[in-house]
Design a protein around this nucleic acid. Structure first.
Lengths: 187, 187
DNA sequence: AATTTCATGTAACCAGTTACATGATTCA
DNA sequence: TGAATCATGTAACTGGTTACATGAAATT
């Protein structure tokens, strides 16, 4: 019902659940042992987030081991949840995504694989590459505009940002090839 | 008095004020027009943050244009503030910094220039490079450990992360050279 | 005269954080 | 027997978010 946007953590939870139904504890372990933990995995974040997802109908929890004191609650994706997940992941990439939530784009990509056919992943990467290159260009202009005082640190920091985006663009090209994209190898 | 750690926003504010005393509005404009805005700059964040900094004695605000309805409050760094800023920026780089707050490290670097002599910036970059390379190596091991299912997206996402850190390492080497570091050009 | 800019802030909200609590089960 | 692990959660707090409000001064 509620159309509040998914936080990065909620998106990660939803994506993981879409791969296999699991409990909060299972999810917590994933966050603790993989770089997905970048989107944080304290119990005080995960359990409330799961409750929100359930309240919004994106996820359905079924109790196992009832009648014990510590039953396990296994969450599975609902149809609404799957639709919402796809919608969030496949939503057109914007400049804002690239500037503010680059890592969320990586998160979105990593769940694409088992949700949509390969061609769709490739178009995602194409769009990703275009936007990332465009922003690198923006940064290049900003860098050029900095006057040359004796202290280069500010400019250097900006250059680090630019390198970051350039690396992302190179990665996107390679990832496209890895997925079998054979359109124009030298764009 | 209070030794709560500085948030990224507070650090950015403190750093900017260390470059020149300025008002909340001035600071807001900087966030709006430069990539520093990455650390967010809504008035609802800046003004309370400035109040906290003042309450903690890191910054001192002096009212200008009193007797008008909208006086301007110009913040300057105190001695305590300068000490705290240096302490925060020069604190040894840890693996946690690299994993969780890589962009804060860039922020710290960008303020180094006008606070410490060049040699200190170079040792900062050396440490940065070492830690960043180490984590890239960690990621490489994780990547190697992923079994080859038919869906390469997860592995590719990890590789993006690794590329990110490798780019940071390359940048650090170049930045060192730009600052005149002539120790071992091929580490 | 109307709009933009200067300049500061508040209020309601939200999603995180740390730290703690509970207690069964499995393993050394 | 004692420790680690399974498994779920709560409570107090924090630092952000958006959106709104105010009103003078400068610009068009």
């Amino acid at each position: 019902m509620d159309e509040r946007p998914l936080s990065a953590l909620s998106l990660a939870l939803l994506g993981l659940i879409s791969m296999a139904p699991q409990s909060g504890y299972d999810l917590k372990k994933v966050f603790e042992t993989t770089p997905l933990g970048h989107f944080s995995g304290s119990p005080g974040a995960i359990y409330p987030a799961l409750e929100r997802l359930e309240k919004d109908g994106l996820v359905a929890g079924t109790l196992e081991r009832t009648r014990t004191l510590r039953p396990r609650k296994c969450y599975a994706l609902t149809e609404v949840g799957r639709a919402r997940l796809l919608d969030t992941i496949l939503r057109p990439i914007t400049r804002e995504d690239v500037v503010w939530c680059l890592d969320e784009l990586a998160l979105r990509f990593s769940f694409l694989g088992h949700l949509v056919p390969k061609e769709r992943s490739i178009t995602f990467l194409q769009s990703y590459q275009v936007h990332v290159e465009a922003y690198a260009q923006e940064l290049a202009l900003q860098i050029r505009g900095i006057p040359d005082t004796g202290v280069p640190h500010g400019r250097l920091a900006l250059e680090l940002g630019r390198e970051h985006y350039l690396a992302a663009a190179r990665w996107a090209r390679r990832a496209r090839l890895a997925l079998g994209d054979d359109s124009e190898r030298e764009p």
